[in-house]
Nucleic acid binder design. Structure first.
Length: 597
RNA sequence: GGACCCGUAGCUCAGCUGGAUAGAGCGCUGCCCUCCGAAGGCAGAGGCCGAUGGUUCGAAUCCAUUCGGGUCCGCCA
């Protein structure tokens, strides 16, 4: 069902068509009906007259006046007027606003579900941390933003798949296997020192973290000392490398999945890069692009201003990314003929398309910013150039600086001071982590102050929103005792007379509740889940204000023992508020609380 | 040298894809609990939206130039 703003927009368009038939659809698409910023301007405003004035060859005020004349007869519109340069301001009759309350109570948390998505298949890929260690704070923002965005898109009517791409191919996985083998040798009691072992490792020993100790133990438990040469020495890699690598990857991914679970993130699909490589997907994709004449052998210019020391011209297999808006053509095969990571990545996106994705959304860290245009051009190249071709959106999450006791927490794997996701969750809790990560738009850098995230004050939006919900629930519990559970069940409340809800603070709250579906819609289209957090904060503010009025004047409290009808109407409003808060928190993946402790 | 992101109140940030007099929290000033809904609320001060040009009915928002801060820059992943 279309929401109130969409309904009114349709009526504005109908009124407009009466006056000015045959306007171009592109023009009509620019007509919007939005909430007004100033209460003095009414409830909603439309720019219809201003965007159509020039093509229609008439003054905006004239068109607006004609619109007003037609809209005045609408039973839902109490007042329509021309304002400023040609706005049409609308004030709806109060009962139309109030009618949203039963709509909310009937729909429950599905209130706000929309259909702008039209069932389009969207693949949201996020986290995709390399399986070389536990998740750390650097992964956290992308995980939360991706998960909330996926929920948001689903709520807006898209058919969403949540996905994780496992980077389990390439050299870093071999380095991981060697590091795990080191822990294995320790587990079986090798006489080798760390330095002696490091000498034997191609590329040196990386990944020295403790988290591989259990992996070494697991390898010992499964294989005894059979993976090592006699005496606890390094055996020939052919004899152990595959086994150690596979076991280590499994255990690392299991650990990452536990971290994700703790964060409340559940992805439906885990795609393996190694599986794609084994299937020859990159080669297939390169041939596909070659058939479109987008592949050639060539030599790239060195980057200007910062030529690497060891730079020398080399012939590589290049993709004509510049044809699709990238700055330079990009290598798909190295000079030695092997495929680049980029080639695998194109193959991976082609695979998502093959599995049905119409819109792909990748959530990346800011350090991959330089990668955006080449990936987008690759996806364009894979498509047929039509409007229905699969698209790729990339949401970049800027860096998060973690503050503890006012001091920045330095992240350094080498120094062993990096905070794991688990540490953060232990300290702050899942709900506060998720909410706080969504209180900035993702392309702005953010400071995450651990103390602020757990503070129980208004400056902490997590607390403020949770507190509003807890207060709602507290009222509802008391109402249930006072009036009986039957009378205060949502279905019963949906049928009560709401005409006594006429105070400005009550109507303001109702208007806020009614704007929720529109927020879902616009945030989904903009791919900006942080808007949900800000909406909830504003909503909580409206509710706290109303609550506070009851504190100043007992006659304005929600529960009035002597006035059953008034009380039921107010309880219905409170129940609707709690419902919308839950609906919003569900998108964010945050648990609503029943009471503050 | 180039690409991308950010620049809005003293501080931390919103600003719904070009709309009306630019908003919130913190901090600051002044109010609101002998008891009942104060981990909260009300009111006030505080702005050249980094700068300069441009586009048009209209710009914090779009374009160009420029100044600060950040990320990144053949074959690593």
């Amino acid at each position: 069902m279309p929401h109130l703003f969409a309904i009114m927009r349709a009526r504005v368009l109908a009124a407009l068509a009466d006056d000015l038939p045959g306007l171009a659809p592109e023009l009509l698409a620019r007509v919007e009906v939005t909430p007004t910023r100033e209460a003095a301007h009414g409830d909603m405003a439309t720019n219809a007259a201003m965007v159509t004035a020039k093509p229609a060859g008439r003054k905006p005020q004239d068109i607006a006046t004609a619109l007003v004349a037609r809209l005045k007869d609408d039973p839902d519109i109490a007042e329509a007027s021309v304002a400023g340069p040609g706005f049409v301001n609308l004030r709806l009759v109060e009962s139309t606003w109030r009618a949203e309350i039963p709509a909310i109570l009937t729909a429950a948390e599905s209130y706000g579900d929309g259909n702008v998505g039209q069932g389009i298949r969207v693949n949201v890929e996020y986290v995709s941390a390399n399986p070389t260690g536990p998740m750390h704070i650097g992964h956290c923002r992308g995980a939360v933003v991706g998960d909330a965005l996926a929920n948001l898109m689903a709520k807006a009517g898209f058919d969403v798949t949540k996905e994780y791409y496992i980077n389990d191919a390439g050299n870093q996985v071999l380095a991981l296997a060697w590091a795990a083998y080191w822990r294995y040798l320790q587990a079986i009691g090798t006489p080798l020192t760390e330095d002696e072992y490091a000498q034997l490792v191609p590329g040196g020993l990386q990944y020295r973290g403790d988290y591989l100790v259990p992996v070494g133990e697991a390898l010992k438990a499964r294989h005894g000392d059979s993976l090592a040469a006699p005496g606890g020495h390094v055996g020939p890699p052919e004899a152990w490398l595959d086994i150690v690598r596979d076991t280590t990857l499994d255990l690392m991914m299991a650990s990452i999945r536990e971290d994700l679970e703790l964060l409340g993130v559940r992805q439906a699909v885990f795609s393996s890069e190694r599986a794609l490589v084994a299937a020859g997907a990159a080669d297939t994709t390169i041939e596909q692009l070659r058939a479109k004449n987008l592949i050639y052998e060539g030599i790239l210019e060195p980057p200007k201003g910062k030529t690497p020391e060891d730079w020398e011209p080399r012939e590589q297999t290049l993709f004509r990314a510049t044809k699709f808006g990238d700055d330079v053509d990009r290598p798909l095969r190295k000079s030695d003929g092997s495929n680049t990571y980029f080639a695998n990545d194109i193959a991976y996106h082609a695979d998502k398309v093959r599995r049905g994705a119409q819109i792909m959304i990748d959530i990346w860290g800011a350090d991959h910013g330089g990668y955006v245009s080449r990936m987008k051009s690759a996806v364009k190249a894979l498509g047929d150039g039509t409007a229905t071709a699969p698209t790729l959106d990339i949401v970049l999450c800027q860096i998060v600086h973690v503050l503890k006791d006012g001091e920045p927490v330095r992240m350094s794997k080498r120094a062993g001071t990096f905070i794991t996701l688990r540490d953060l969750l232990d300290e702050v809790g899942r709900d506060a982590v998720r909410f706080t990560m969504l209180t900035r738009k993702s392309d702005a850098q953010m400071e995450f102050d651990i103390a602020a995230a757990v503070a129980q004050t208004r400056e902490n939006p997590v607390f403020y929103v949770q507190y509003a919900h807890a207060r709602c629930r507290s009222v509802l519990r008391a109402a249930s005792e006072m009036l009986g559970p039957e009378a205060t069940a949502p279905a019963a409340l949906a049928g009560v007379n709401l005409e006594t809800l006429s105070h400005e603070a009550e109507l303001a709250l109702i208007r806020r509740l009614a704007s929720w579906p529109r927020v879902v819609e616009s945030a989904a289209i903009a791919r900006e889940p942080h808007r949900i957090a800000f909406f909830l904060y504003d909503l909580a503010g409206d509710f706290h204000m109303l609550w506070n009025r009851g504190r100043d004047d007992a006659a304005l409290r929600f529960l009035q023992p002597e006035q059953r009808a008034d009380t039921l109407a107010r309880v219905a409003l409170v129940a609707a508020t709690a419902t919308v808060i839950r609906s919003g928190l569900a998108v964010m993946g945050v648990t609503p609380v029943e009471e503050m402790r």
